[in-house]
């Protein structure tokens, strides 16, 4: 045991910048995944066979292959195919956003299915158009029920974001590795990064709890 945290002190600002880098693409990915996931979920419950098929195929592909593979295809293989240069940041947002959408769509679909069919009928009987019914009646009730599952997905995404270090994006994880290589000590920077990940997830959990309580207002 020769732990020496003094060694990483000069590198702390460098590692902390990784928080911003990580949060930046994670938050955008969550939003992309959430919006796309909601749209996919709605496609899955429509009566239009083509939309259903597309949404199911999408989910099957993005859930059926490793995230790291999707990330690498977007970052390394797409430029080879198209000649377009794609930044690590954009690749990360795309890979995580598209991947998360597949999981989110399944969660939301389950949430919509769990809303009492009478709610749809009541809205229909009042002449409420489909879009308003979904937006104002069905989805708010669905989201309330699936909030814990959604939070789980967001937490997973936040932690799994560490694999963007493999495409050289300077996130929290990558920075901890760089510091480790620089000072020939890995335990201290990795432990430090781990602590930061845990704090981020902890805060996310608290926010989730807060939102959940707000939505329980009507109980």
């Amino acid at each position: 045991m020769n732990l020496d945290f003094n060694q990483i002190v000069p590198y702390i600002p460098f590692i902390l910048e990784g928080i911003v880098a990580t949060l930046k693409f994670v938050s955008i990915s969550i939003i992309v995944g959430f919006i796309l996931g909601t749209l996919l979920a709605i496609c899955k419950i429509t009566k239009v066979p083509l939309l259903k098929w597309i949404a199911d195929a999408y989910t099957s592909i993005f859930r059926g292959t490793p995230l790291i593979l999707q990330l690498m295809i977007i970052y390394f293989a797409v430029p080879q195919l198209t000649g377009l240069d794609i930044t690590a940041f954009v690749s990360a947002v795309l890979a995580f956003g598209l991947n998360s959408a597949a999981y989110v769509s399944e969660i939301i679909r389950a949430g919509i299915m769990a809303v009492d069919k009478g709610q749809t009928e009541a809205a229909e009987a009042l002449g409420v158009p489909y879009k308003s019914m979904m937006l104002n009646i069905i989805l708010p009730q669905a989201f309330k029920n699936i909030l814990p599952a959604l939070m789980n997905e967001f937490i997973t995404l936040t932690k799994e974001s560490a694999i963007v270090s493999t495409i050289g994006y300077l996130d929290l994880m990558r920075r901890a590795q760089i510091v480790g290589a620089d000072i020939y000590r890995n335990f201290e920077p990795l432990l430090f990064a781990g602590l930061i990940y845990w704090v981020m997830v902890f805060i996310l959990t608290k926010i989730g709890g807060l939102v959940e309580r707000r939505m329980r207002q009507s109980d």
Binding site: G118, Q119, A122, I137, P140, Q141, S218
Partner: peptide, 8 residues
């Protein structure tokens, strides 16, 4: 079964 909107 009424089917009131529970969140309103």
């Amino acid at each position: 079964h009424f089917h009131l909107f529970p969140h309103m």
